[in-house]
Design a protein around this nucleic acid. Structure first.
Lengths: 210, 210
DNA sequence: AATTGTGAAATTGTTCACAGCA
DNA sequence: TGCTGTGAACAATTTCACAATT
């Protein structure tokens, strides 16, 4: 009922988990689920599940939990699933080309519509219907203005320049694989995927526990 | 001075950022840095920087900031850098093979020492000194018992089984690329890298802001 | 004069516990 | 009776602000 409460920023990520689980349950033929059960699947408390869902609406029924079909539709709507989101990829190295080959995106509602690189050897290479273009041409590209989501998978030194170009071409969300803290203007969101940091968390833990 | 205060779990990740930045500064020939400056580089407040560092020791000098050489040595020690950490990789698909080819790990103190897959076509394939082995042989492998860090890059359906095997073979830290919430016993740490969730955060933002 | 280290305050996020509904 | 939705309690994290230090 209440749409104006402060939503913790982590709640949206958890919504993704809930959606994934109820889609799994739906495939198994289930048609209802309780917050307790959803909590078990996602390793969260039942209260957390209910609170998260309550930020976005009243999806449940007292006494009998959540109807999977309804909850699924609601979560998909909230998460913007329904549209196919075009993505610009910059950097077709190890990680970039893995992403290009990854078939899962399309199924999840995302498509890499353009890919750019600086490397002469990579420019012109074809992945399905997509041809890798010269990074110098990002701005020239008309379709570039349609994509609001970008993935940066270039070496650290190039990442900020690429980010600047992307921001100019109207990208609003950047998934950054480069080990750099990108500077972007307000209104642009960056999420970092930083393997070194993840692994350093591990080496920290391991160094201390033994 | 105070080593017993509660350390926020996110502090260690930030330590990684600080280390990265001071190493960058060191290369540029700098030898001191202030919390304000380090905050600018990492997009954090100066207070956050000081508080984070203070959880681990008194590295700074009133009036003149932090000496880069000292701080670097301290952070490297805290983060367990110095040893070369062996990693087991399971799943040599798109992402797995990108990680195998990624040269950066070694430089950061991590080496993929073993790689496994189920796919007959992938088993036996050579990447440098490393040959992909049959996933059925993980337990048999002696060296497997040395690696405490594992990366799971298998399809969703196989991930939990792989995690169970890894836990049995004494792995304590798992970096999981599969879109599943893994169930592991106490004492085992999982960190998830979940592209769908990241992208869904974006589609959520974009759906609401326009 | 500049800048750290840190209690205390403010903010943000999670869990409790229960009234109210199906 | 079983389970949601939620205000209130609690916990964790960040920011403030300033005494102490070089």
């Amino acid at each position: 009922m209440n749409e104006k409460k402060r939503i913790p920023k982590s709640a949206v990520s958890r919504l993704s988990l809930y959606l994934r689980e109820i889609q799994r349950l739906e495939k198994d033929g289930r048609d209802r689920v309780s917050s307790t059960e959803l909590g078990e699947f996602t390793d969260l408390t039942d209260a957390q599940v209910r609170k998260d869902l309550s930020y976005f609406g009243n999806f449940g029924t007292s006494g009998s939990g959540y109807e999977i079909a309804t909850l699924k539709a609601s979560l998909r709507k909230i998460l913007g699933k329904g549209a196919m989101w075009p993505i610009v990829l910059v950097g077709v190295g190890n990680i970039g080309s893995a992403l290009l080959r990854y078939p899962g995106f399309k199924h999840e509602g995302f498509v890499i519509k353009e890919a750019y690189d600086v490397d002469r050897n990579k420019i012109g290479v074809r992945y399905d219907e997509l041809v890798v273009k010269d990074v110098a041409d990002i701005n020239k590209n008309e379709k570039g203005k349609a994509a609001k989501i970008a993935i940066i998978a270039v070496p650290e030194k190039a990442a900020q320049d690429v980010a600047d170009i992307l921001v100019k071409s109207n990208v609003k969300c950047i998934l950054n694989f480069a080990p750099v803290v990108l500077k972007v203007p307000e209104g642009v969101t960056v999420r970092n995927i930083d393997l070194s940091t993840e692994l350093e968390n591990f080496s920290f833990l391991l160094s201390f526990s033994k």
